[in-house]
Design a binder for these strands. Structure first.
Lengths: 198, 198
DNA sequence: CTAATTTTGAACCGATCAATCCAAAACCAC
DNA sequence: GTGGTTTTGGATTGATCGGTTCAAAATTAG
């Protein structure tokens, strides 16, 4: 009944997500988004109503792409609790160096969003807040299971341990963006696991 | 021989630092800087040649104000090594809630700069990189001393332990900006210290 | 084919960006 | 006081910002 689109919305969203991820919200202009997606302004504003809406959708997509598999890892019934946590850290280190043949990491879009936007963008803050909450619940679950099975010797509150691991993950992302190499990140992860031992 | 300034350069720099700290580099306009400092555009451009130069000076000032006392804490000969590290964490938690009667923390300008700018501003990247290096050296020193004295049981490489603590500090800053309260940060710090025990 | 509907590209919008210019005001040395 | 020098505020610059408009192009239904 009418002219169809010549582009794939999900691919465009993906490209926009990468642009925001690499350069941040403010430093990504609508021109940059046109260049990254290969779309014209009209197509972008027709499909995603504004730069801010596009960012929200890109952030939601990023969270889906990243958090859901990580939660699945933490809830993998095939692995004992401690191994699931090790697998999570491995995945995070791998991701930090996957899309980066050389040069700095671009970090993690949720961490970047917390730092750049959470203070003055309530919608973005709510999205990353929900994400953090979900991650903390999953971490708490696997940590409590590890304590019950005896794999995790620490008697600290599982919620506190979860917040600790989550903070370490955020710190690793910042360190990677600051130029840390793979060995440094692996050492940080390994040392963090020591805190579950005592 | 000529008209003197009616403002204090250091006070202006301080106000600019706070503006960049709270809102980031991109989101702080030159108008914002005028409002924050109380200066006119001419005075700002006369004194600090550009927005970017002003940012560099603000960042340098922040590093001086924050890192130097922290290094001093870590090298305090009055305290045993483990106590110095605990004092550092205390100071960081305090700082995170000091200038914030309510609402979110504005985090740490060096962390914010790593996340927002390090990827595309080599000068800013070099400044925060130097700062991180200095912090790591000091941490390594106190950690090695703790290992020698037996206070720190972990036999991991002191450099790795230093990178771990530094990552935790960064993660705490991100967590605070994400809305974590004081108790959460204190739990993270306490748990991080567990990693030095085993 | 035509009519209806949507996408698309380009021109365009006012607002704001960082930065500059300039003349008036303010000060010091003399 | 006067001359020389700097600061200061306000107007202004061209560029770019996010966003809109509009007509031509493209497509399908009939």
């Amino acid at each position: 009944m009418a002219r169809p689109r010549t582009f794939d919305e999900d691919r465009a969203l993906d490209a926009a997500m990468r642009a925001f991820w690499a350069n941040g919200y403010e430093a990504t202009s609508t021109q940059d988004l046109c260049a990254a997606t290969g779309l014209g302004r009209s197509s972008i504003y027709n499909t995603f109503s504004s730069k801010h809406d596009l960012f929200k959708r890109a952030l939601a997509r990023y969270i889906d792409l990243m958090t859901i598999p990580q939660i699945a890892l933490l809830e993998d019934p095939e692995l004992p609790p401690a191994a699931r946590i090790r697998a999570l850290f491995e995945r995070i280190v791998d991701a930090e160096f996957a899309l980066r043949p050389e040069g700095r990491s671009i970090g993690c879009l949720t961490v970047n969003t917390i730092v750049e936007l959470a203070g003055r963008d309530p919608e973005a803050a709510a999205m990353v807040g929900r994400d953090q909450e979900i991650r903390l619940v999953a971490l708490r679950g696997v940590l409590a299971a590890g304590q019950r099975s005896g794999e995790i010797a620490s008697r600290r509150d599982p919620g506190d341990l979860a917040r600790f691991l989550n903070a370490v993950i955020g710190g690793m992302r910042v360190a990677a963006q600051g130029g840390a190499d793979r060995a440094a990140l692996e050492a940080v992860a390994a040392t963090a696991l020591d805190a579950l031992a005592p």
